[in-house]
Amino acid sequence: MTEKTLVLIKPDAVERNLIGNILIEYERNGLKILDMKLIKASIEVAEKHYAEHKEKPFFSRLVSYLTRSPLVVLILEGENAISRVRSLNGTTDPGKSPDNTIRALYGLSLSENTVHASDSQESADRERAIWFG
């Protein structure tokens, strides 16, 4: 089934000039970039993106991280795009992520883990609306 999903290349990856390396992984694995932009996220947008974590003690750190410098927002399309992108990204903790996943290759820590991907079609739709209107 062809799906569309949202991906963020987070500030730590942009700061380290990893945008191209990460995009290559998605394209090499048969995913198509439908839309992409480099932006500096506002606090309001970051808070909407991480709304499910609002009551958690790390919420303010998430928002600060996402707004500290530019990031890349993209929409990818492909067969089973949501699960494929999540598999390519690896687990949230780069140290526990399978070899050759984006997070294992480029992630710095649990909090600076290089990329975000929607976890369901519902999340993808919600996140696309936040980032692309």
Results as ranks from 00 to 15, higher is better:
residue 34 L to W: 03
residue 85 V to Q: 10
residue 119 D to T: 07
residue 59 F to K: 06
residue 37 K to D: 12
residue 56 K to H: 02
residue 6 L to A: 04
residue 123 S to E: 07
residue 4 K to G: 06
residue 52 E to K: 13
residue 34 L to N: 09
residue 71 L to I: 13
residue 17 N to D: 15
residue 11 P to N: 11
residue 89 N to C: 13
residue 84 R to M: 14
residue 92 T to L: 02
residue 103 R to I: 05
residue 109 S to V: 06
residue 122 E to Y: 01
residue 63 V to E: 13
residue 110 L to F: 05
residue 103 R to H: 04
residue 72 V to I: 15
residue 103 R to V: 05
residue 81 A to M: 12
residue 14 V to K: 09
residue 131 W to T: 03
residue 26 Y to L: 02
residue 29 N to I: 09
residue 27 E to P: 06
residue 133 G to N: 15
residue 25 E to L: 09
residue 19 I to G: 01
residue 103 R to P: 07
residue 128 R to Q: 09
residue 57 P to W: 10
residue 115 V to P: 02
residue 119 D to R: 08
residue 106 Y to M: 06
residue 41 A to Y: 03
residue 77 E to Y: 02
residue 43 I to D: 13
residue 133 G to L: 09
residue 46 A to K: 10
residue 114 T to S: 13
residue 13 A to D: 06
residue 94 P to W: 03
residue 60 S to K: 13
residue 122 E to L: 14
residue 132 F to R: 05
residue 52 E to Y: 02
residue 132 F to Q: 08
residue 48 K to C: 05
residue 110 L to C: 01
residue 82 I to H: 06
residue 93 D to S: 09
residue 12 D to I: 06
residue 111 S to H: 07
residue 97 S to F: 00
residue 121 Q to E: 15
residue 105 L to R: 12
residue 7 V to Y: 02
residue 20 G to I: 01
residue 36 M to E: 11
residue 25 E to P: 01
residue 48 K to T: 05
residue 81 A to W: 09
residue 93 D to Q: 09
residue 106 Y to V: 02
residue 15 E to R: 07
residue 4 K to R: 14
residue 69 S to Y: 13
residue 61 R to E: 15
residue 16 R to S: 14
residue 21 N to Y: 00
residue 105 L to I: 05
residue 86 R to M: 12
residue 131 W to P: 04
residue 52 E to C: 00
residue 132 F to N: 04
residue 34 L to H: 10
residue 13 A to I: 07
residue 33 I to W: 05
residue 88 L to H: 01
residue 32 K to H: 11
residue 53 H to F: 11
residue 115 V to M: 02
residue 18 L to R: 02
residue 30 G to S: 06
residue 97 S to V: 01
residue 43 I to K: 15
residue 8 L to P: 08
residue 67 T to P: 12
residue 49 H to F: 07
residue 91 T to N: 04
residue 45 V to W: 00
residue 53 H to M: 10
residue 10 K to L: 01
residue 123 S to D: 07
residue 92 T to H: 05
residue 78 G to R: 15
